[in-house]
Design a protein around this nucleic acid. Structure first.
Length: 517
RNA sequence: GGGCCCGUAGUUCAGCGGUUAGAACGAGCCGCUCAUAACGGUUAUGUCGCAGGUUCGAAUCCUGCCGGGCCUACCA
């Protein structure tokens, strides 16, 4: 029915072995901004997040908690679903790998891979450490003085284990993957990740063991249910399960292939090597782009459970406000880099960028309008050069921001917008509308109109980052909900429109502990 | 061991062959008073990690070294 361009963006599905922290919120936030931006820009958008719930670890964690795996995952999955509300994420779908539809999709994909001749039954053999629950390659082990073979970080004893396993013929896909990367230079970002992946693939690929018989919490292999599918084959499939795979008549199938998978840098290989190989083998279109985000540290330290220094997005947003937190995460660090979460930096951004620059700009302009223009959008008179210069900068922003959004360069988007905010503050000082009030009210009105109009344009563009706060500002400018999409970017505020009483949107943050001195 | 990335003002970073190396935040001084003690103007600080080399010319290219981070597959 719709001929609009589609845009499909996904978060990683989060492993339920962990409770949500700032890292999860960060990846989902980036997707949320992409989704909101594209919706405002007229796209038919689907934004998916969810939870990855299978595997031996979950099985064991559930047992330890005295719950069935299903009860356990129900509980943890819900905490991720709750994060959506807390962070004001605009997810269209939430998928769980324990859903029936997902089993169906995984099994269908498996059968397609078997039919294509890319899966065979073999034997998985290796040095296994019971303590580490992990296999080690030959060269990762060494025989000690006591004649025992050891491996791993703490040198646990290993034994030779063989178990039947299905394999995916990944070794046959190296050249086709390299070719794929070359023809699709935008497939992996940032650049350094792309280099890593290419050098990994150039180094040669081994066949991938894609089934396990050592546990049962997962998707059974069709026709051989003693085998459970390798969790990554299972997990990656979620992106097409959502679109209805294998039923290509499903209305959501229009979204495949995905435009963007945002992932953590730790799972880049699964998304950039295994996933396209599986899809190509099964004859399914490959996603267009995978972007690897970095990690956050806290005040210079790695986030770890033992230090208990994980940033809780719920508590943090309750303290400083949700939108300032969202702004900070995407402004402070170039997306794709690692970042350090410093409280001082967060407060600094909140006060200087939001309260002083943007919030105060809105407030100073709107309060002059309220006091001088009968609370209506002032009349727009003849424009002079200074007026058009500012208006043109604001108008030009949409094209700049579009381009940066498509690169996931969120910090540059915000930098560009804030340059115009600084211009607007300079313009206020230069034009001094409070002085014009006495000498030239007509000119004053035009100046105020130019400012209100500039604020409107800027605010439209900030919506994806701070949806709650920008809605309040647009309310204060009496911009109708229908006029908040980018299709209305090049309309103008209509003089004479009644405006509500202005109210500050970004209060300064003062550290409660700090006593005024 | 192999590979990738990074080291530039107090801080976070931009610049990636060409006049006296930039921005923001923070600091000093001045101005303004519409505004959330907010805004504007202005000043200051850098052996551009170290050492060689290429070049008329290098933060920018090459080599080596020092320091930091990441990847080097089957827990996810």
């Amino acid at each position: 029915m719709s001929s609009r361009k589609t845009f499909y963006v996904t978060t990683p599905i989060y492993y339920v072995n962990d409770v949500p922290h700032i890292g999860h919120a960060y990846a989902t936030l980036a997707c949320d901004v992409m989704a909101r931006f594209k919706r405002l820009d007229g796209y038919d958008v689907h934004f998916l997040t969810g939870t990855d719930e299978h595997g031996q670890k979950v099985e064991k964690a559930a047992a330890a908690a005295g719950l069935s795996p299903q009860e356990f995952t129900d509980k943890v999955s819900q905490s991720f679903r709750d994060l959506i509300g807390v962070m004001n994420f605009s997810a269209d779908g939430f998928i769980r790998t324990t859903e029936k539809r997902h089993y169906a999709a995984c099994q269908a994909l498996w059968e397609r891979l078997v039919a294509a001749g890319d899966i065979y039954l073999g034997k998985y053999a290796g040095w296994y450490s019971v303590r580490d629950e992990a296999f080690y390659a030959d060269d990762e082990t060494e025989v000690g003085a006591d004649g025992k073979r050891r491996a791993g970080p703490v040198g646990n004893e290993v034994e030779w284990v063989e178990e039947p396993s299905y394999f995916f013929k990944l070794s046959a896909w190296g050249d086709r993957l390299l070719d794929f990367y070359e023809k699709n230079p935008r497939f992996i970002a940032p650049e350094s990740r792309r280099n890593e992946v290419i050098s990994f693939v150039r180094g040669g690929l081994q066949d991938l063991s894609v089934s396990r018989t050592s546990f049962s919490w997962g998707v059974p292999v069709p026709g051989d249910p003693k085998h459970i599918m390798y969790v990554w084959l299972d997990a990656l499939t979620n992106y097409i399960t959502e679109c209805g795979y294998p039923d290509e008549s499903n209305p959501l199938w229009r979204f495949w292939p995905a435009d963007l998978h945002i992932v953590g840098k730790d799972i880049i290989r699964f998304h950039c090597v295994f996933w396209p190989a599986f899809l190509m083998a099964a004859g399914v279109a490959t996603p267009k782009r995978v972007f690897a985000s970095g990690w956050w540290t806290t005040e210079g330290q790695k986030i770890s459970k033992s230090l208990g220094n994980a940033i809780d997005p719920v508590a943090m947003s309750a303290e400083v406000g949700l939108d300032p937190l969202r702004y900070f995460l995407l402004r402070e660090v170039p997306f794709g880099n690692d970042g350090d979460f410093q409280r001082r930096a967060l407060i600094g951004r909140l006060n200087s960028d939001l309260a002083n620059a943007y919030g105060n700009l809105c407030q100073r302009v709107l309060s002059i309008v309220a006091k001088n223009c009968e609370g209506k959008v002032p009349p727009k008179g003849a424009l002079v050069e200074a007026d058009t210069a500012l208006l043109d900068r604001a108008k030009g922003l949409l094209a700049v921001v579009r381009a940066e959004i498509d690169e996931q360069a969120f910090h540059r988007v915000l930098t560009s917008i804030w340059e115009v905010i600084a211009d607007a503050n300079r313009y206020v000082d230069a034009q001094a509308p409070w002085a014009l009030a006495k000498t030239d009210p007509v000119r004053r009105d035009t100046v105020l109109w130019v400012l209100a109009e500039t604020i409107r344009r800027i605010t439209l563009l900030i919506q994806p980052f701070m949806p709650g706060s920008t809605a309040k500002i647009l309310d204060q400018l009496a911009v109708a909900p229908a006029a908040r999409a980018f299709a209305a970017f090049d309309t103008e505020l209509v003089s004479g429109t009644e405006l509500p009483k202005p109210q500050g949107v970004f209060p300064r943050f003062v550290e409660p502990a700090k006593v005024a001195s």
